[in-house]
Amino acid sequence: MAEPLPKGGGSGIERSMNSYSFTLADQPLLALASGALYWPAQETLCVSDLHLGKSERLARRGGTLLPPYDTRETLTRLDGVLVATGARHVVCLGDSFDDSAAGGGLEEGDRLRLSALMAGRSWTWIAGNHDPAPMALGGTHRAEVGTATLTFRHIAVPGETGEISGHFHPKATVAGRSRPCFLIDAARVILPAFGCYTGGLRSADPALAALMGPQALAVLTGQRALAIPMPR
């Protein structure tokens, strides 16, 4: 299943990366075991639902004081995927920040780290339901991004094709283990949440079952990218 990557002019390291390859609207794409989606032809990396600043937001709202390392961990993972793929373009599919204030509330070290990741790359923030307003963080802010073949948005729109979205945090179970997963069919891909402190929604949930066609696959993330028929 894990086929060698078509060369996309990147670093070439991706050849060894653990991924599931497929096509959407005739475009070869890779669902990486880390939970990111890579489009080699365009050297574009796509991640969804980073929820940066989540622990800070919960503390600010008078909730519990969770370990404040989630943003650091999420950025470390993102750094790892950017190095491995050599992506030149990044699209974040929304809910990148846990709320509109979280962008400004980032801890100094985390903010510098994010700036370092953005440096030298074109970076697009798509608005999500958690972070509808643009941040003062550089990059481009869009409601959605359409290309000739693929459309990037936060929440899937029924009936659309060639669509890449996030929002639902899908997860699925194999051999008794539940993992965040991609949902893939002929019309669309729904990405798993990439952020550290994120939960999931079972693929069998009516909201997801209604969006995905009967032949849909779930590609589980984790140690290896594992494809199974989408559990309903």
Binding site: V174, A175, R177, L220, Q223, R224, L226, A227, I228, P229
Partner: peptide
């Protein structure tokens, strides 16, 4: 566990 998951995934496919 990893091997079991991979085997199960292959069988399901």
């Amino acid at each position: 566990r990893d091997r079991l998951m991979a085997e199960t995934a292959n069988r399901l496919m």
